[in-house]
Design a protein around this nucleic acid. Structure first.
Lengths: 203, 203
DNA sequence: TTGACAAAATGAACGCCGTTCAATAAATTA
DNA sequence: TAATTTATTGAACGGCGTTCATTTTGTCAA
């Protein structure tokens, strides 16, 4: 059955090409200027072809976000190497912000835009979100095992911590930091997160 | 010159009608389904007329967001009545979340969507954002005057605190809380913010 | 009251968009 | 080679934001 396999492989290749091209266009020109027609033109296929590989634009965007998560998990891998759980948590925050600044379009798809989540509605679940979240809760659990955060619910803790970093990143990505005339927004963001780390280390 | 005044008044009235209708459609059907044509039909004018009152859709959305800020400031007024600045800060967080849950569409326009901010780019500044932010920094300053947060930069503090609450609210509004199977998201959000309040009160 | 002028509103038209689907082309199988 | 399955095409549909020549409405002087 070599032919079947080749066809399957070719199908995956075109699917991947669509995803890569979409991600690239998205990164370069932003979501708003990246139409299905533009993607089709970039891969030199007709618009209709994309719909053989993806149900609609929402699904395509969701699958691009999955690519973002793969990259995100690579960023996270550097966190696992650290021993001290509280130090892991610090590093996680740093890495999270770094990812958002390195790949703002991916971050947008993964954590801000509505479109990708629409395609998940009738689906089973948000696997990538849960996996990422698992990384955070595991670290928090280890922190608790060495005495931090005792008595607090782990879900509430994780939402608090995730929310804080996500909030700062989102305000920046969606251009809501006009009132801070700070020339280097990344520095301001990192300093704000530093204070946050001070605060929670006393819990 | 009574006629001039009446014409000016009528002009403002139609402008207000457009804004109110847009806000209402936005609240009921969401941004994505609220087209300029739909707004025009709702007010029983032709689409072209809207462009006599607003440069483009971004500007219209920005002006709707200004309405949101007016409502937001009313919410904030209940904070001013409190004496103790740390208690003010607590209340500010509560009121902020309540506003976001009561008026998710306004919140989206004010703090998440890209479109309204585009119209501000060539404009002078984001007045409403700065005013809101001023409320927060004033409270933080008062907290510092009674001994809290000493040694920390007020901008970094404010970004940290705003970011935390905004982050939690945004994750909820943009449907990124699937991993918390909590039946009552508001409760979870409030509990998370409670922990945050515990944390920063030790700073 | 009438006609000239200005202001406001219209809606067809432009060039986009996401999406569908009958027609066509290409690849596989018999 | 012919029949059949699979993949691709691109015109067409309805909708979008926006523009602008045309028409309607309102104002004021003669």
């Amino acid at each position: 059955m070599g032919i079947q396999e080749r066809k399957e492989r070719e199908k995956q290749e075109l699917r991947n090409l669509i995803l890569s091209t979409a991600a690239e266009l998205f990164r370069m020109k932003g979501y708003e200027k990246t139409s299905m027609r533009a993607i089709a033109k970039a891969i030199e296929y007709s618009p209709g072809t994309i719909y053989r590989y993806f149900k609609d634009k929402d699904e395509l965007l969701y699958e691009v976000s999955v690519r973002g998560f793969q990259l995100f998990f690579e960023y996270l891998s550097s966190v696992r190497e650290i021993k001290d759980p509280m130090e892991q948590l610090r590093k996680l925050g740093e890495v999270y912000i770094q990812f958002a600044l390195d790949y703002p379009s991916y971050y947008d798809l993964m954590f801000i835009m509505n479109d990708p989540m629409r395609s998940i509605k009738e689906k089973e679940s948000w696997k990538e979100g849960e996996t990422s979240h698992g990384v955070l809760t595991n670290i928090i659990r280890e922190c608790q095992e060495v005495g931090y955060f005792s008595g607090y619910d782990i879900n509430e803790l994780s939402l608090m911590i995730w929310g804080q970093v996500h909030g700062i990143v989102s305000l920046h990505l969606r251009d809501r930091m006009h009132m801070y005339q700070e020339s280097d927004p990344q520095k301001l963001m990192n300093n704000a997160v530093s204070i946050f780390k001070d605060a929670i280390s006393k819990l």
